[in-house]
Design a protein around this nucleic acid. Structure first.
Length: 277
DNA sequence: CGGGACGCCTGTGAGC
DNA sequence: TGCTCACAGGCGTCCC
């Protein structure tokens, strides 16, 4: 589920409401992808800072104001995770595997498949968080991410361009939906070898990726099944998708049937007419 | 090292 | 109705 737009929509939906709260309790349910890495009691009494996003990770600083190196929780929503935040979230369900009770409300991670994670780290730049964030590519809205940076990154790989986008070593944030959509918007066949993408096409792809992600962000992300922001609001981008999940349906630009293929064990959707090598 | 396959875990929908 | 199977938004790890 959660790609960059969903993670950012989630962050925006609770960050300002939880900021400054004091942690009163922490609950751990079934194991997530990795162990928390500290005792639940370590979190109690900590002050929540400003939630940040890096790629598809959220960083929730704990431990007071503006310390140079404050500890915190690195969170990932995996494939099926979502966060909710509120004063009264109701009874815990079978898929609620982490909760942070605070003076301003309860932050709860619901994640049926448990590919998500909540990991304590002594700081964002050291320990577990640093290790998980190392090697991530540029943020798509970072001014340093432009056609030239994308082109250079693609030149260094020789996988299909779709997989280079998904990998996250060049640019972060695109998952299966938005990688497919951005490639459609840029008119590029997803099977094209990344090092064969010309400079002008890389320029177009960089712009297409930003446009796609910004559009999804504005629509509250994509809700294919269970994505909700921390208020419980569903996203609406899925209704705008041009290729994702539309195998056999007509391309809205040229009426050619959308095709599906498998790349790296994942479905890729594309228009064989609009997208060229 | 780059690249590809695998596995983590649960739910859903299709087909029989 | 009930079973089995394929498949699902991510990504670290293990091989070659």
């Amino acid at each position: 589920m959660p790609e960059l737009p969903e993670v950012e929509v989630t962050r925006l939906s609770f960050a300002s409401r939880i900021e400054g709260a004091t942690v009163q309790a922490a609950y751990l349910g079934k194991p997530l992808r990795w162990p928390l890495g500290c005792e639940a009691s370590t979190l109690v009494g900590q002050t929540v800072g400003t939630a940040q996003r890096r790629g598809k990770y959220l960083w929730l600083p704990l431990g007071g104001a503006e310390q140079a190196e404050q500890p915190g929780l690195l969170m990932h929503l995996g494939m099926s995770g979502s966060l909710s935040f509120g004063q009264d979230l109701g009874a815990r369900g079978a898929h609620d595997h982490f909760e942070l009770g605070t003076t301003k409300g309860c932050l709860r991670l619901t994640d049926p498949r448990r590919f998500g994670a909540v990991v304590w780290s002594p700081s964002r730049d050291r320990g577990a968080a640093a290790k998980l964030l190392a090697g991530l590519g540029l943020e798509p809205f970072d001014p340093r991410f432009d056609g030239s940076a994308l082109h250079a990154g693609l030149q260094r790989r020789r996988v299909a361009v779709k997989q280079a986008l998904l990998g996250g070593q060049i640019v972060v944030g695109a998952g299966n939906i938005y990688a497919c959509e951005a490639l459609f918007l840029a008119g590029i066949d997803p099977r094209t070898r990344s090092d064969r993408i010309s400079r002008p096409r890389a320029e177009r792809l960089a712009q297409a990726l930003r446009t796609t992600l910004a559009n999804a962000l504005a629509l509250g992300g994509s809700t294919l099944r269970d994505f909700r922001d921390a208020h419980g609001m569903a996203g609406d981008f899925q209704s705008q998708a041009q290729v994702y999940g539309r195998e056999g349906q007509q391309c809205q630009a040229c009426f050619t049937p959308i095709k599906r293929l498998i790349q790296g064990q994942r479905s890729t959707f594309y228009c064989p007419q609009c997208q060229r090598r």
